[in-house]
Structures are given as C-alpha cells and as structure tokens.
C-alpha cells in the first residue's frame, strides 16, 4: 500500500486495535516527521494523587509514532519491527491535558531505520519526554533503490 495520510488514519482507527482503543489521532505525517495526539482519559493516570499519566501511555504514543515515521520515508514500502526504544522522561506530564508527540525517522540503512522524537503538551520547546528508536526493516517493494 502506498503511503497516504487518509489511508493511515483509516488503518489506525479500524485496523490497529490498541491505537483505536487509546484514541490515537494522526495530525500530520510526511518524511519530515509524524505528529499525533492521544486525548486525555482518566484511565491513563499513573499517580492517583497528582493525576499525572502513567509512562506506559507515553510509551504507546511514542512507539506508535516512531514506527509510523518510517513509512513516508520509505514510500510506504516496508514493514517495521521495533528493535529498541529508549524514553527519557524530562518532566512530569501536566494532569488532565492531552498528549502530543512528534517523531522523525532521521536515517535508514538497507535493514535498519533510526528515529527520534518528543512527547509534549502544548509547548514543543518544553517536552515531557524524548525518545530514540531503532527498527528492523522488511522491504516490501522497491523502496530504497531510488536515489
């Protein structure tokens, strides 16, 4: 399937159960990065006293967008499997606010894609988390043979 924002939105909302379940929305997606949002829900709270969301939901957002950031870079013609994902938590999330993230695939080799990105709420210059990932590629078309 050729990469297309509407196709990706449809795939996420109907084809990928966990992305649909958490309400992950794709805001934009091209080879300079992918931006998405998970609207706040009280079920995501990890600290009942402060109301701060659990790191797990931040991981779900960053893992999802990291894998998706590879798609437009390779023209949609590769499957990805996560090798590793590192997340640094830079500050506590503000309670009750939606989570946003922007991730970019900054390098691909024949077999591996490398990504980095941030999670934030409102202010991209004051992120709540930073992520770096690497992904094993299984190419499904002739992606990567072009210049």
């Amino acid at each position: 399937m050729k990469f297309d924002l509407e196709n990706m939105r449809a795939l996420m909302s109907s084809g990928i159960p966990h992305m649909a379940e958490v309400g992950l929305e794709l805001i934009s997606m091209d080879d300079t990065g992918v931006v998405g949002r998970i609207p706040h829900r009280d079920e995501f709270i990890g600290d009942p006293e402060s109301g701060v969301v659990h790191g797990g939901i931040v991981t779900v957002l960053l893992d999802s967008l990291s894998g998706m950031s590879v798609v437009p870079v390779l023209g949609g013609m590769a499957m990805t499997a996560t090798l590793d994902l590192r997340i640094d938590y830079l500050r506590p999330a503000a309670p009750g606010e939606d989570l946003f993230a922007k991730v970019r695939c900054y390098k691909t080799t024949r077999n591996i894609a490398f990504t980095r990105g941030i999670a934030y709420q409102g202010d991209m210059d004051d992120p709540i988390a930073h992520a770096t990932g690497s992904f094993m590629l299984t190419r499904t078309g002739n992606a990567g043979t072009q210049p």
Binding site: P17, H18, M19, H54, T59, V60, S64, I87
Partner: peptide, 17 residues
C-alpha cells in the same frame, strides 16, 4: 492490546508499558 492484527502481535508500546 493488539498492535499488529496481521501477525497478530501485541502493540510494542504495551509491552513497554
């Protein structure tokens, strides 16, 4: 909890969580 319905496989973010 499924992230890849074709395999099928758990969502990687859930394994991390």
């Amino acid at each position: 909890l499924i992230g890849n319905p074709m395999l099928p496989a758990l969502h990687g973010g859930i394994t991390g969580a």
